[in-house]
Design a protein around this nucleic acid. Structure first.
Lengths: 172, 172
DNA sequence: AAAAATAGGTAATTTAGTTATCTATATTGA
DNA sequence: TCAATATAGATAACTAAATTACCTATTTTT
């Protein structure tokens, strides 16, 4: 009986095992997907503590970090940052406004735009879970030395760029 | 006016910038999330070519790789591998069976279980998009040298383990 | 052999997200 | 300068992806 082998998922020799198989590559893809799934899980746990959903927590963090940037945190900017559509940010932000965690202000420099900011309560809620955030992240990235951490940061930054090229025609 | 600063998301000194800020760390988290999102996007593109959804494509690949392992590809095993629930695999696999891409067979060693296998058509469909898969992955991981690729694989494997610990109490 | 665990399936539901379309303001360029 | 076009955001309608709760059938444990 002939054993059909699944397609080899990569062709660059740098990414293949010595024998031309893709075991290491596939393990890497699996690990990256698992790590991504776990990041979301951790995020959901933190979100629950402050009474919001995972995506809402992601929006809160994005606003927290973008509100002091030049231009501030607009709906569209947050959407791009989180890789989701504009309308999704609109509806979720409206829920956060209702919960008094985020405020919406007209953008004085652009009559179409709004500026999103955390309310005092929003700031307080995030400050309150800082210990949990630190514990989670320290654990998540626990095995990394400073050197490895920087190596990973560098590799991830480069992948972030190259992956954009891979998206506009067709991984596993 | 006092500039409120968002919570610092990590405390281990190895993961902090020289000045005690978390800029590098946060950039890493952002990059990892982006890379994860792009992996899904690429997957969706490949899936579309063979007329299935992204999650269905993920199941096809999982079955392709697990069907030759000891124990074969059971519903539960696939679910764990993909980090989703059992019932989700059940319903999606049933669609793949209807599309004649996957076959379901009783597990001779366990009367409760089923064994999933790709049909000839399923094998053929995956074989047909092998070129596109390779192009996508070669591009996605394009900037990596062989050495860097192995370094990344090692780091990802370790994160996959440590991230499990972080999940069972609370990332951004 | 009873109790508990495991494999899988079905039904109902929720959440996360999208596309299409609209209004209002801004920007471009003939 | 003003018409054409692009951009920011909102609303509505919808879909996909996934979950939880519960059920049956086996298998394993005690």
């Amino acid at each position: 009986m002939t054993q059909k082998s699944p397609p080899v998922s990569v062709s660059r020799p740098e990414l293949l095992d010595g024998d031309g198989r893709d075991q290491v590559f596939r393990a890497l893809v699996y690990d990256l997907l698992s790590v991504g799934a776990r990041m979301q899980e951790v995020r959901d746990n933190l979100a629950k503590i402050i009474g919001v959903t995972g995506p809402q927590y992601a929006i809160l963090m994005a606003v927290a970090h973008m509100q002091n940037d030049v231009g501030g945190a607009g709906v569209r900017a947050v959407a791009r940052r989180l890789h989701v559509s504009g309308p999704f940010i609109t509806t979720q932000v409206n829920l956060l406004v209702k919960a008094d965690l985020v405020g919406k202000f007209p953008n004085p420099e652009d009559g179409r735009g709004v500026i999103l900011r955390l309310t005092d309560l929003g700031e307080a809620r995030l400050a309150a879970i800082e210990p949990e955030i630190k514990i989670a992240n320290d654990t998540f990235f626990g095995p990394l030395s400073a050197t490895e951490f920087h190596a990973l940061a560098d590799l991830a930054a480069r992948l972030e760029k190259s992956s954009e090229l891979a998206v506009r025609p067709a991984t596993d």
